[in-house]
Design a protein around this nucleic acid. Structure first.
Lengths: 356, 356
DNA sequence: CTGAAAGCGCTTACAG
DNA sequence: CTGAAAGCGCTTACAG
């Protein structure tokens, strides 16, 4: 059924139908009612492409999940622990929340997961094809800045989750981040409060904003307590379980090792747990451990992991809300939001017991 | 840039450009090359809506994730354990795999998560608006059969994951399921092989195909070993952690309880673990436990959970492949696939020790 | 082989 | 208030 058909049925013009659908003023209530009644009755739904072509906005945003590796094998085909990060802690709740919020605001959402440089082309295509009114990016790294900047320049409306601000006075974007820095401060202060002063850290992939901020927070907090930042206590990981494992082995295997370990995410904490077992170290008796993300599985570890809860769903929800607001106002806005983060105390930390 | 502009630039007609883009035969290679070169050079991308309106297919499929509850509060806003099921074991890998596979085949994917009866309207709208060429459904229950049937009747191309076949000789759809029945058989045979004969089961939400099949497999396997199916050993749960907890308390709290417990998913197994602790039962010494799904966290439980691995990613990949194939062939096909499922032996089971 | 033109199903100035 | 008509940017019979 086309608007033409409905028009004939009602003995009015397509124009009028279009006007009531698009809520034009100056239409008598009687006409309005009649048209809506017929629309319901005949189950008429305007063709989306035709509307778009005629200039109505898409009511569609994209969420691009970037997970660009050198190789281009999709994660779910891998058997390594990389599958973990992908399946869980991070992306899934963000996607769900974006989808919910968008649907609630009557927007459709296009999802695209990008594994390789080559697939980044798809991002540009979606914009050029005018399929969407705006987009949300998750998981970008510095190397994608150029692309992002290009899109911003073209006045596209973008929300970036966990991306460093691409500074430029005239070109705005929406930045939604967790307050990772504060999270590290909370974690390290907690450990120091427990009497620890030798605190090691295993970082995430430092190309990601969150990894950088978490490291900064660690360093600054130590400094604020006049504790020396010892590079021997820092291991540069990549958010994967294996780097948590190797990092923990590396740091804890040294003479005079730290008594507490802070991991940049929970997945790496799993690796650290395994390393601790192999090293004959009991958690929390011999080593206190704090993770980051509050991944679902963190509560099931033995002992349950003390970690920093990141409001992933809220991140997605805010991003969706803000892009859609920008779209409705037809203007790209510069917004920076930082969401609060909380320490969840569970069983992986203990007050430091001096050996004397 | 519109095709018209490009045409002028090249001194040819829009028709020709359209023909090379759509790979018409009978175009001299020279023309072809010239046009492609210009397309790349000027970064021309045809407007998606215009193409669709002119009759080219969308190259877009939808994935509808149904999680219809009586209430309509999105899960991610809840604090109960329902969040768990939502975030993890099931949907996320399916979505990822669908998205990957679709992108690989040059299709876009629209995602929509449906929480309430009311939102089901969106499903019909997406079809009526002609936004998509086909769709994949996950998480349907019997109450959605009517809607599905209506869509099938309208000749839409559908792949259904974990849905019972809606029988009808003339109206086909694609069904992709895990072999849940076989999974139960493997789990129960394993337990029997360990010497257990009193085996309890906690079912999932029986409105879902998977829950039903898992229960059937349990019953039939017991029967095939001439073991009586004791209704006292069956608790009707709903896939949520709490029902695993209550079910385990219920079944294991009786006099002469089972020595092994089979849970219809891993989330409920977590509940059973907690119940065991409270009941003073050691796993696996006092009670053997087998889960289902091989959720990410199952390996982190203490002891690590023996469970049935379900190839969620493969499920999504097959569904995407099959709908897209159907779309390309422009005909709806009737296909039923059952994917193999494997028992993962970990530490939650033990050979039954007679007390004498 | 290729161009001019009709058509896809809407929206929206324009005119009344 | 409302209809006739142009226009959105493509594709594709049709004609040559």
């Amino acid at each position: 059924m086309r608007s033409e058909d409905l028009a004939k049925l009602l003995g009015i013009s397509r124009s009028t139908i279009s006007r009531v659908i698009n809520n034009y003023p100056d239409i008598p209530q009687a006409t309005r009612d009649k048209v809506w009644k017929a629309i319901k009755e005949y189950n008429y739904v305007p063709n989306a492409s035709a509307r778009k072509l005629a200039g109505i906005k898409n009511n569609m945003i994209a969420i691009f999940v970037l997970d660009v590796k050198d190789e281009s094998v999709p994660h779910h085909l891998k058997t390594t622990d990389e599958t973990l990060i992908y399946n869980n802690p991070f992306f899934s709740p963000v996607i769900n929340a974006v989808s919910d919020q968008a649907n609630k605001l009557d927007y459709y959402i296009l999802i695209s997961i990008i594994y390789s440089k080559k697939d980044l082309k798809r991002v540009e295509n979606v914009f050029s094809q005018k399929m969407i009114d705006g987009a949300i990016f998750v998981g970008t790294e510095e190397s994608e800045n150029e692309l992002l900047f290009k899109l911003i320049e073209k006045e596209h409306i973008l929300a970036l989750i966990d991306t460093n601000e691409i500074h430029n006075a005239n070109h705005n974007a929406i930045y939604v981040n967790a307050n990772n820095y504060e999270g590290s401060c909370k974690a390290i202060s907690y450990l120091i409060g427990l009497g620890h002063s030798k605190i090691g850290m295993i970082t995430g992939n430092l190309k990601k904003l969150s990894a950088m901020e978490r490291l900064e927070g660690y360093k600054d907090t130590l400094k604020s307590y006049k504790i020396n930042v010892d590079e021997n206590f820092i291991y540069y990981g990549d958010f994967m379980e294996s780097s948590g494992y190797h990092g923990a082995k590396h740091i804890l295997g040294k003479p005079n090792p730290p008594t507490a370990l802070f991991l940049s995410n929970d997945t790496m904490a799993v690796g650290a747990y395994k390393a601790a077992v192999e090293l004959g170290l009991k958690i929390p008796d011999d080593i206190s451990i704090v993770g980051f993300d509050n991944a679902v599985f963190s509560q099931y570890l033995s002992p349950p992991l003390t970690t920093v809860d990141v409001p992933f769903a809220e991140l997605g929800k805010r991003a969706a809300t803000l892009v859609i607001e920008s779209i409705e106002q037809k203007k790209q806005r510069g917004i920076v939001e930082k969401l609060k983060v909380n320490l969840i105390e569970r069983g992986s930390c203990q007050r430091f017991k001096s050996e004397f």
